[in-house]
């Protein structure tokens, strides 16, 4: 009976309906369904459907974001159950995201976060105007694979380099890949600061992140 939930779960993601996704996740927990199965046979199917439609040009960014949000909401319900059962979801990698110090521009960074978490990354979003030291501390705390740094101003873009320098100083630079983004970020800048990847948009950022962790 509980397997009837799978198509509904997928559909809740396709519809971008967080409320429905949460309700179905709760139902799954109550009926004793394996939470990892709920994700892989239910919710992820929806994410993939939207992703494929997007790739074909039949779905648009808001649908992708809403699917990502619904997925996140469902997983938040399933997470405690996974812990209880001592299960862990296989993630593609851990990403610490931030808009650098002195810069308050948020939307691009947040969009990248949503896309990455919908694609199977564990995302730690530190918000905006984040000092390099705080980014470093989070990288250490969660043992991050990737750091994503956003900046919209040429005057704050220099902080992307500062974070790279700090990682270098701490001996973490080889271990942690650095992605940068934001309107003023160019290929030349990426080379100059020796970042590992950049993308002009959130969809491209997912491709880059997958490449960086060897999942592409």
């Amino acid at each position: 009976m509980s397997t009837d939930l799978f198509p509904k779960m997928a559909q809740s993601i396709i519809d971008g309906d967080s409320d429905a996704a949460v309700a179905l996740a709760r139902q799954a927990v109550e009926s004793g369904l394996d939470p990892l199965e709920a994700i892989s046979k239910g919710f992820v199917v929806g994410v993939n459907t939207v992703g494929e439609a997007f790739a074909k040009g039949d779905a648009f960014l808001p649908e992708l974001v809403m699917a990502g949000e619904a997925m996140k909401a469902a997983i938040a319900v399933l997470e405690p159950e996974m812990q209880k059962r001592d299960m862990t979801r296989t993630m593609l990698g851990k990403v610490v995201l931030a808009t650098v110090e002195g810069d308050i521009h948020e939307i691009g960074k947040t969009l990248v976060g949503t896309m990455l978490s919908a694609s199977g990354f564990q995302v730690y979003d530190l918000g905006v105007d984040v000092p390099s030291a705080k980014i470093l501390a989070k990288v250490k705390e969660v043992d991050a694979d990737i750091v994503g740094l956003s900046a919209l101003l040429t005057t704050t873009m220099v902080k992307q380099k500062e974070v790279i320098d700090v990682l270098d100083k701490e001996g973490l630079r080889r271990k942690v890949k650095v992605m940068v983004g934001g309107a003023p970020v160019t290929h030349d800048w990426v080379q100059k600061i020796e970042a590992d990847g950049y993308s002009e948009d959130a969809i491209g950022a997912v491709t880059i992140a997958k490449q960086l962790v060897g999942a592409a």
Binding site: F54, F60, L61, L111
Partner: peptide
């Protein structure tokens, strides 16, 4: 209006 596909300016 942001681009429907990428969200870009």
């Amino acid at each position: 209006a942001s681009d429907l596909r990428s969200g870009a300016y």
